[in-house]
Design a binder for these strands. Structure first.
Lengths: 166, 166
DNA sequence: TTACGTGCAAATAATTTGCAGTCCC
DNA sequence: GGGACTGCAAATTATTTGCACGTAA
């Protein structure tokens, strides 16, 4: 499948109103200089709705979009975007780092065994956590991450593992 | 500080009633052959209450306890214990794998910036998660992991990040 | 005895870094 | 023009693996 968006190789040029310009604005607002590489990666990341990526997923996409950049730049850019608040790193065990373009509060499904990550819909009411333990003295709560682990198979009754009694 | 427990170098010998024998039983019940290395690591892991460790934390402890084993064995053993349900791997972002000797349902505080993990006390009522999104078709929920991210500093009012409005 | 475990060292995998050259403002 | 950014390759860090030897049952 070919990309249908603007030619990313010319992303450096000003084209007000086009998605590329929106990415440039987004970068500038985040305090990042809008270089060609950042614009391209930003376009890939933010131009398609919310998504989860790893460094080499994104690197592959960039290559398929014929954007010349290196894996090291992808790593650096992901970190810079994360520091700037444009991305959020998702806590999953395993060696790969996953990033989420959706930085609003929501949670994730993780399919057991393989690293398949699915956004938990925050279409419904935002998740509520009650009886949250108090933070230890000297600390404050910054964020609560929830990972809902899934097992393949179906048919079994849906239960909340965190609760002691059904 | 010196260890006050039994000499782990003789862990292979039967000594009914001593902690080492309890570890051997635990291993056997889990279907693992109680070898010297597993007994030593099991004793280090389970002999001191609930704790979080990484492969090289545990390796260090083993060395300090003058137990001769290799880092590779520590890795293998951690995986075997985890598969056997004696340990649980904690989902934290970052390259290191953390393991928890407490396999009951509970959650974790994670201090921002550094990999400091603290058990959330499950002394209070077990954490309740409401409005949990339904699992996608074909899947069932196996477990829900919650990581409560902390920021140093204090004084700020305790708030639940999952809530939408300030 | 014999299959299961372990030690060792080398292989992988993911990510980071140093430095020379390039590009944005 | 000057400092911020990138490319490249080599370095690090965390973990896994293959194979010869050791040991529990």
């Amino acid at each position: 499948m070919m990309e249908t968006g603007p030619d990313l190789r010319t992303a450096g040029q000003a084209r007000p109103g086009c998605p590329v310009s929106q990415v440039k604005d987004k970068l500038r607002r985040a305090g990042l200089r809008p270089t060609r590489q950042r614009i391209c990666l930003g376009w890939l990341l933010f131009g398609k709705g919310d998504r989860h990526i790893t460094a080499d997923t994104l690197f592959d996409e960039a290559q398929r979009a014929r954007v010349p950049l290196t894996l090291a730049t992808v790593y650096n850019t992901l970190k810079q975007f994360t520091d700037a608040g444009l991305l959020r790193q998702i806590a999953v065990e395993g060696r790969k780092a996953y990033f989420d373009t959706d930085v609003t509060d929501h949670h994730h499904f993780l399919v057991d065994g393989e690293g398949e990550l699915i956004d938990a819909p925050h279409t419904s009411a935002p998740l509520t956590v009650t009886d949250l333990p108090a933070a230890p003295a000297g600390y404050e709560i910054k964020r609560v991450d929830v990972i809902i682990r899934l097992r393949r198979r179906s048919g079994a009754p849906r239960r909340i593992s965190g609760a002691q009694a059904p």
